[in-house]
């Protein structure tokens, strides 16, 4: 692969009801944005397991977007609040692993906000472009044990964060 220009590879987890439809709307309205985000549909931002994000970074993604309905507008009433809490914990974990905060962003976009989502994508791509490649995937090959360590952290944090409300 040529090293001419760094094109970030980003995985986006978009909820079925708001943000995925925002991306659809951006399409219907032809709102141009950066082509770097590869979108994966989940039913709710609450479905986004922190290990999805770590998996994506481990597989070579340079950044991750998690997008859901605005707080208070979740299709499943309040599950995006859970996504929000997990996101905080995830950021904590990522900091510990030396991953810059801006690589993983949580975005709210309603089904009517194609423009907003497109802007958020452009922003994330610009942020990650500035940070440069993450190269985690390369690191794993050098040190296989890290993957295990990584997964252990995820499970520890999962337990820690799901305290009863």
């Amino acid at each position: 692969m040529s090293e001419q220009k760094f094109e970030p590879k980003i995985v986006g987890f978009l909820c079925n009801w708001c943000s995925y439809r925002a991306a659809d709307l951006a399409g219907s309205a032809r709102i141009q944005h950066a082509p770097n985000v590869r979108i994966i549909r989940v039913m709710c931002s609450g479905r986004v397991d922190p290990s999805f994000v770590l998996k994506a970074l481990a597989m070579g993604a340079d950044g991750v977007m998690i997008a859901g309905c605005h707080p208070g507008e979740c299709h499943y009433l309040e599950q995006n609040y859970k996504a929000m809490r997990r996101f905080g914990m995830l950021q904590h974990t990522l900091r510990g692993l030396g991953v810059e905060e801006k690589r993983v962003q949580l975005v709210w976009a309603s089904a009517a906000e194609g423009q907003r989502l497109a802007e958020a994508i452009d922003q994330l791509v610009a942020d990650v472009r500035e940070l440069g490649p993450l190269h985690w995937a390369g690191n794993w090959e050098e040190n296989g044990e890290r993957l295990q360590a990584l997964e252990d952290i995820v499970h520890e944090h999962q337990e820690a964060m799901e305290v009863t409300a």
């Binding site: 994966i40 989940v42 039913m43 709710c44 609450g46 479905r47 986004v48 397991d49 922190p50 290990s51 999805f52 998996k55 299709h75 499943y76 599950q79 859970k82 997990r86 499970h155 999962q158 337990e159 799901e162």
Partner: peptide, 24 residues
Amino acid sequence: CGTCVSACPAGVISGAHFSDRQIF
């Protein structure tokens, strides 16, 4: 919605059509 699926510390809740395996 699948929120419980990603919350289960034992990983024994599966979400039909949006399973961990599928998303991974």
